[in-house]
């Protein structure tokens, strides 16, 4: 056995995967080669160090967070009542793993703004009519050279702005249509609308949010044009 062969076999040797002949050959080479003994020593040490890494303890509040998310998802299911189609599964797969948990706090403030927008009744105090994705949440202006990342954030804000404008134009049209509906259907509409607005609010910027905007605007388009929309669910 030479050093190169040993390097290839050392894992199997240390893991006890080699047969007696192979193991003996390794031992034989290690007896005579200091460099390979070093290699084997280091591998042994590495294994021990890995096995002894301090365990990462799950935080105590983890269960509560999971329980809450499962509960929220089930409530959403009960409202949706739709079967997962192949596409919705694909979409679920595409959804970023990291849910914007941290956003929930800031979304609270924004949620109010959406409701304001939807109920832009004259009796509402004007001061409350903030834009949906309020630029109030924008980071402080930096004096450093503007960067592509800043420009992209601007583009995202612009896109939000355009969608917001479209929603504000569609809402009166949709509401005029809904005014001719039964109270029960009108309530279902309000509920569906809210669900779609929530989806916009929790979506992270970029395509995920644009998707939620598309869902909201095309829903309003359908209602505004007097189409039969599946209430309480459906795309």
């Amino acid at each position: 056995m030479n050093c190169r062969q040993l390097a290839a076999q050392v894992d199997g040797y240390l893991d006890g995967d080699l047969d007696e002949v192979g193991a003996s050959a390794c031992r034989g080479h290690l007896r005579t080669c200091a460099a390979c003994r070093d290699l084997a020593d280091q591998q042994t040490r590495l294994r021990a160090a890995l096995a002894e890494l301090p365990p990462a303890e799950p935080p105590a509040h983890l269960w509560a967070a999971i329980d809450a998310r499962v509960g929220a998802a089930e409530i959403a299911d009960s409202r949706r009542g739709a079967l997962a189609t192949g596409w919705s599964r694909l979409v679920a797969w595409l959804r970023p793993v990291a849910w914007p948990v941290a956003m929930v706090g800031s979304a609270g403030a924004i949620a109010l703004a959406v409701v304001q927008l939807r109920d832009a009744a004259p009796s509402q105090p004007l001061a409350l009519r903030a834009p949906v994705i309020a630029p109030a949440a924008a980071p402080p202006v930096r004096l450093a050279l503007r960067d592509a990342l800043d420009e992209r954030a601007d583009l995202e804000r612009e896109a939000d702005g355009r969608f917001r404008q479209v929603v504000s134009e569609l809402l009166p049209l949709a509401r005029a249509e809904v005014a001719t509906w039964s109270a029960r259907r009108a309530q279902a509409f309000a509920h569906d609308l809210e669900r779609r607005e929530q989806a916009v609010l929790v979506a992270s910027p970029g395509h995920v949010r644009e998707r939620a905007w598309h869902d909201l605007t095309s829903y309003l388009e359908r209602v505004a044009l007097g189409e039969q929309v599946a209430l309480g669910g459906g795309r």
Partner: peptide, 11 residues
């Protein structure tokens, strides 16, 4: 990110 991913896993 560990906590968030672990949540996602259990969900």
């Amino acid at each position: 990110d560990a906590e968030e991913v672990a949540q996602e896993v259990f969900v």
